[in-house]
Write a protein that binds this DNA or RNA. Structure first.
Length: 566
RNA sequence: UGGGGGAUCGUCUAGCGGCAGGACGUCAGACUCUGGAUCUGACUGCCCAGGUUCGAAUCCUGGUCCCCCAGCCA
C-alpha cells in the first residue's frame, strides 16, 4: 500500500494547512515540544514529539525543543539530559534550537512589569489558603482580594522587592487582574509569579520569584515565534488565559494553542504520578525497567524508534479520549523487527535430544538463512552434532490433536538439518519427567540436499549441546492483568492489578554459537519464539543476557487454548 | 451544580448533505523447512428521540452518557 494515498491527516494538520494557505504567520510553521524536566519521557510523549516534529517537517517548518523549567523545586539537570537522549533516540533533531523557559526569565519579568503598569496585574498578599477561599467554587463566583486595588506604584515597588528577595515564600504573589466572577476558574485572577527561595538547575540563585505555566508558556511560545502551540486536552480551558496573556503583553507573535487528546494504552499506566510510584515503591527495577512504557524502558526492552514512530503516525490525532490497544503497538514492533532482525536459534527451556544413529564425535556445519524476509542479509553456518537441545514445549509424551511437533513415534524436521523420529525417552526415576529424548535421523533428508523431499508437518529449532552458549533470558509480560488498570475497577487501586508474572527469568538457556559477543542492544529473532535484544546493562562478553521484546504470534497457543476450553 | 470539551466496528481512526471506509483484532482457508511471515475471504459500527431535506453520521431541536477545571503543578 502506498504511503501517499493513505497519508495520515488530522484536524490539527488541517488547521495548519489552512493557516499556511491563508498566509497566517507569513506562511510560516513553527512548533515546539515543551517537556518539563521533572520526569522521564514515555510513549505518550512520543505521540506529542512525533506530532510536533512531524508537522514541522511536513510543512517545511521548524520544531524547537524547549524545557518548561519554571518550577525549580521539581526539576533537575538529570531529566534535561535524559529527555534529550530520548528525543534523539526517537529520531528527531532540534538542531540549534534547544531552549529553556528559564532563558526568558528576564523578559518575562519585564512583561509582568508591563502588566502592572497597565493595571492588569497586582501583588496579592493573601495566603495560599485565603486565595483558594476567595476563588469561589464551580457554581459560586469568587470574591476580589482586598489587595486587588493597590496602586500601580505600590505594585511595582512590591514586585521589585519580591524579586530582590525581601519576602519569604508565600508572602506575596503576582496575580493577573481579570475577573473573579468568571465561570472559567482560570480567569479568576490567576497567579503569574510566586516566591520560591530555591536553587534553579540553570539559573542557580539568580531568581527567587518564578513565573507560573500560564504566564511563561504563552510568552515563551511568542518569543520563539511558535505558530501552532500544541498541547493536551486538559489545557483547553486555559486557552482564554493563554490568549489574554499574549494580548495584554502586546506581543508581536500571537501563537495559536490547539489541544488534542493524550495517549492512553491498555495494560499499562501513563501518568507521571503512577509511573513514579511504581519506581519508588519498587514494583519495577527503575525508570528503564523493560516493563515500563517509558522511552528508556521500551528501548531496553528492544523496541525500535521506527516502530514507535509508525505507531504514533497510525493512532491519529483527535479530541476524543481513547485507549489504544497494546496489541497495536506490538503489531508495528513485529512488522519492523520481522523485516530487520536476523534470525538465530535459541532454546529457552532445554530438553536433551540424542540422535542414536548419528556418528559420535561428528560435527556438520549447516547453512542457515539470516533472514528469509531479506536474502541480502546472507547466511551463516550452524554446528550440528549427535546431542542437541530442543525446547521442552516441542515434545509431548501424550500429544494432543494437531500437535505437529515431537512425540514418541512421531517425525519432525530439525530446522536447517534433518528429519528425526522419536524412538525412546528417558525419564527421571523419581518425578517421571522426560529428561532425554532419543531419535533416529534420516541422512537423506538434510536441508537443501534435494527437491522432492518427504514432508513433515512440523519444524522445530535446536542447538548443538556441545557448541551452545549459555544465556540468561528475561521474559516480559504485561505489567498489569487488566486492560484499564488506571481506571477505578470496582474501587480497586491500580497497584492491585500488577501482574505477578510480568517478569520471568530463565537462567539455563542455550543459544547458538554465532551469538558470541553480540553487541548490547542488538536485536534478534529467536526462531519460533520471538524477538529478543541483548540487555544493554547486564550482558557482557562472558555472560549473555537477553530481553524478550515481544513474542511471535502463536497460533498453536490459540489452538491449544480452544482445545482446553472444550 | 457553573464553565470547557467529546460521543462512528471489540480497539484506534476517516467522513465535512449523496453507496459508512481503512488499520489493528477476531474467525475461516491457502501457503510455508519458523504453527512466524505472506496471501484470500468473512466479521462487527454512526449514543438516543424528534425535525429539515428527494436524500442526514454530517444541518436543527431536545435528551443521555463520558472527560477536564476550584495548585503559589505543568
Amino acid at each position: 500500500m502506498s504511503e501517499t494515498d493513505s497519508r495520515p491527516t488530522d484536524f490539527i494538520r488541517e488547521i495548519v494547512a489552512q493557516d499556511v494557505k491563508a498566509g497566517k504567520y507569513g506562511g510560516r510553521v513553527h512548533t515546539r515540544f515543551p517537556p518539563e524536566p521533572n520526569g522521564y519521557l514515555h510513549i505518550g510523549h512520543a505521540k506529542s514529539i512525533c506530532l510536533n516534529f512531524g508537522i514541522a517537517q511536513e510543512f517545511g517548518g521548524l520544531c524547537n525543543l524547549r524545557f518548561d523549567d519554571t518550577n525549580p523545586t521539581k526539576e533537575s539537570e538529570e531529566y534535561v539530559q535524559s529527555i534529550q537522549r530520548d528525543v534523539k533516540w526517537l529520531g528527531f533533531d532540534w538542531e540549534d534550537r534547544l531552549f529553556y523557559a528559564s532563558d526568558y526569565f528576564e523578559q518575562l519579568y519585564q512583561f509582568a512589569v508591563l502588566l502592572i503598569k497597565k493595571g492588569k496585574a497586582y501583588v496579592d498578599s493573601l495566603s495560599a489558603e485565603e486565595i483558594r477561599h476567595y476563588r469561589g467554587t464551580l457554581t459560586e463566583p469568587g470574591k476580589e482580594s482586598p489587595y486587588r486595588s493597590r496602586s500601580v506604584e505600590e505594585n511595582l515597588d512590591l514586585f521589585a522587592r519580591m524579586r530582590a528577595g525581601e519576602f519569604r515564600d508565600g508572602e506575596h504573589v503576582l496575580r493577573a487582574k481579570i475577573d473573579m466572577a468568571s465561570p472559567n476558574l482560570n480567569l479568576r485572577d490567576p497567579t503569574l509569579y510566586r516566591i520560591r527561595h530555591a536553587t534553579h538547575h540553570r539559573t542557580g540563585d539568580t531568581w527567587c520569584i518564578y513565573p507560573t505555566y500560564d504566564f511563561a508558556h504563552p510568552l515563551s511560545d511568542s518569543i520563539e515565534g511558535i505558530t501552532h502551540s500544541l498541547c493536551t486536552l486538559e489545557f483547553e480551558d486555559h486557552r482564554p488565559l493563554y490568549d489574554w496573556v499574549l494580548t495584554e503583553c502586546e506581543v508581536a507573535c500571537h501563537s495559536q494553542q490547539i489541544e488534542f487528546a493524550r495517549l492512553n494504552l491498555t495494560y499499562t499506566v501513563l501518568s507521571k504520578r503512577k509511573l513514579l510510584e511504581l519506581v519508588e515503591e519498587g514494583h519495577v527495577a527503575g525508570w528503564n525497567d523493560p516493563r515500563l512504557p517509558t522511552l528508556m524502558g521500551l528501548r531496553r526492552r528492544g523496541y525500535t524508534p521506527e516502530a514507535i514512530r509508525r505507531f504514533c503516525e497510525h493512532i491519529g490525532i483527535a479530541k476524543r479520549d481513547s485507549v489504544v490497544e497494546m496489541g497495536l503497538l506490538e503489531h508495528f514492533l513485529r512488522e519492523d523487527l520481522n523485516r530487520r532482525a536476523p534470525r538465530v536459534m535459541a532454546v529457552l527451556r532445554p530438553l536433551r535430544l540424542v540422535i542414536d544413529n548419528y556418528p559420535e564425535g561428528q560435527v556438520e556445519e549447516l547453512d542457515a538463512m539470516n533472514n528469509p524476509e531479506d536474502p541480502s542479509m546472507g547466511t551463516r553456518r550452524i554446528p550440528f552434532s549427535r546431542e542437541l537441545y530442543i525446547e521442552q514445549d516441542d515434545f509431548r509424551e501424550d500429544p494432543p490433536p494437531k500437535f505437529y511437533r515431537l512425540a514418541p513415534g512421531q517425525e519432525v524436521r530439525l530446522r536447517y538439518a534433518y528429519i528425526v523420529r522419536c524412538v525412546d525417552v528417558v525419564k527421571d526415576p523419581h518425578t517421571g519427567a522426560v529428561v532425554e529424548v532419543h531419535c533416529t535421523y534420516d541422512p537423506a533428508t538434510r536441508s537443501g540436499s534435494g527437491q522432492s523431499q518427504r514432508k513433515v508437518k512440523g519444524t522445530i529449532h535446536w542447538v548443538s549441546a556441545l557448541h551452545a552458549l549459555p544465556a540468561e533470558v528475561r521474559l516480559y509480560d504485561a505489567l498489569f492483568t487488566v486492560p484499564h488498570p488506571g481506571e477505578e475497577n470496582e474501587g480497586r487501586d491500580y497497584r492491585s492489578f500488577l501482574n505477578p508474572r510480568s517478569l520471568e527469568i530463565l537462567t539455563s538457556c542455550k543459544v547458538e554459537p554465532s551469538l558470541k559477543g553480540a553487541a548490547p542492544e542488538s536485536r534478534f529473532q529467536f526462531e519460533r519464539l520471538g524477538y529478543f535484544c541483548v540487555d544493554a546493562f547486564d550482558s557482557s562478553e562472558n555472560r549473555l543476557v537477553f530481553n524478550r521484546t515481544v513474542a511471535l504470534r502463536d497460533s498453536w497457543a490459540k489452538i491449544e487454548k480452544t482445545q482446553q476450553t472444550r
